[in-house]
Design a protein around this nucleic acid. Structure first.
Lengths: 133, 133
DNA sequence: TCCTAACCTCAAGTACCCTTGAGGTCCTAG
DNA sequence: CTAGGACCTCAAGGGTACTTGAGGTTAGGA
């Protein structure tokens, strides 16, 4: 059976040991077994960290990521609270996608435009198109 | 000609006066005229703030937003530097959209699944689907 | 005139997400 | 056996984007 040190895990997950300790301290990771005071991990930690990474990339705060992970803590069907949480989060994600798409449009418009003043451009931005003149 | 105080502008833009002063201090807003030491604004400030708000919503840092705004500072065609900047930003936005969509898939999968352990779910997350069993 | 709300500056605080540093222990290769 | 690297804890620091507080001035209505 494989056993990894914190440094080993960090290398595999692209994280510093300090980050892994931090995740543990804020409850994103279970307290691992220790040998001579040193943390030892088994490979399943990588999957856990991949959940964490994805959540963080998606803009979850630490607290939210913890909520997400706690959805798995129990064997029973996910709690209503957790369901509610994921629902809200899905809405937020949808909103974020919409905003990003909006911003993409705006940036693309700006790259093409030559608004004489910021005032004009501000107006252009408000309806996500620009006077190309 | 209309003249607004900082509080008035804040009310119209949905910002606190402190935020407006902060934006000014970091170079997102020009230093406005003053009367008796108090800032006075004309309505064009609203458009400027709408650019700032959109950029912030899209995840631009203050420094990046400043870059963006400086694209309008000159009347000449946008500098190569600014072009490069918007290009990179567009890539980042595309990446963010992709990630958000990924996360949406994952969350939707999780809401339906009953993985017995996190290890299983971690694996499920990695390919964005879940054992529905 | 007087009072209060709104304004001013500047420094410090806040929340998030880690990193860095100090001071110390332990493993391992030479 | 000894040096150096990886590990430990705990406290403090850092960047971002503001807010809050102290201490003080001004505007404008009753």
């Amino acid at each position: 059976m494989t056993e990894w040190t914190i440094g080993e895990v960090g290398r595999r997950a692209g994280l510093r040991a300090s980050a892994i300790r931090y995740y543990e301290s804020v409850g994103l990771l279970p307290r691992p077994l220790r040998r001579n005071g040193r943390r030892i991990y088994d490979p399943s930690i990588i999957e856990r960290l991949s959940v964490v990474e994805l959540a963080q990339r998606a803009g979850f705060t630490i607290a939210e990521t913890r909520m997400l992970l706690h959805g798995f803590a129990r064997k029973t069907p996910p709690s209503a609270r957790w369901q509610k949480f994921t629902e809200r989060k899905l809405e937020q994600i949808a909103a974020r996608i919409k905003e990003a798409q909006e911003m993409r449009q705006v940036l693309e418009a700006l790259r093409r435009c030559h608004c004489p003043t910021l005032t004009d451009c501000g107006r252009a931005l408000q309806d996500a198109r620009c006077t190309d003149t």
